[in-house]
């Protein structure tokens, strides 16, 4: 299947809704922490999982590049950069905000995924409307 501009437009509209839902939905109860969980094991799991997921993402991006025309791929990748920067900055500000002391809950992983997806869709819309040279 070829990823056309229309397909990308539709996909990012759906993604924007999904991102907004993740941000505004009620957070689920936190997972119980296991007291005797070895921190080195946790670090190892995180490291291995990151390598596996990053490799999978590289494969996925290669597939995207083959399936999408260059214009669409550039739109997606430029928007992804916006999403990464927005997510990092949002997390830093939201997590360290003085409003946390006044009752604003810390961001959940769902919130951050929501911010990332929504900002990806917003970045896509921005470049689609203003152009990749904007």
């Amino acid at each position: 299947m070829r990823i056309s501009t229309r397909f990308a437009d539709t996909s990012f509209s759906v993604l924007a809704l999904a991102g907004a839902y993740l941000i505004f939905k009620e957070p689920s109860s936190a997972a119980l922490a296991i007291d005797n969980w070895n921190p080195w094991l946790e670090l190892g799991c995180a490291f291995i999982l990151t390598i596996i997921m990053a490799s999978y993402a590289v494969w996925g991006a290669r597939l995207d590049r083959r399936c999408a025309e260059d214009y669409v791929f550039q739109l997606i990748t430029n928007a992804a950069l916006i999403a990464v920067i927005t997510s990092l900055m949002s997390h830093a500000i939201w997590d360290m905000s003085f409003l946390n002391e006044r009752g604003l809950p810390k961001p959940t992983s769902g919130d951050m995924v929501g911010v990332m997806i929504l900002s990806w869709a917003m970045g896509y819309t921005f470049y689609r409307v203003r152009g990749l040279n904007a």
Binding site: S4, T5, R6, E69, D70, Y71, V72, Q74, R130, G131, L132, N133, A134
Partner: peptide
């Protein structure tokens, strides 16, 4: 050119510089 009409429109309006192969 085997691209979308939107890509042609973006090139013509200066919103997108095509890749070297294109």
């Amino acid at each position: 050119l085997d691209v979308s009409r939107q890509a042609i429109n973006a090139i013509e309006t200066g919103k997108y510089d095509p890749s070297l192969p294109l």
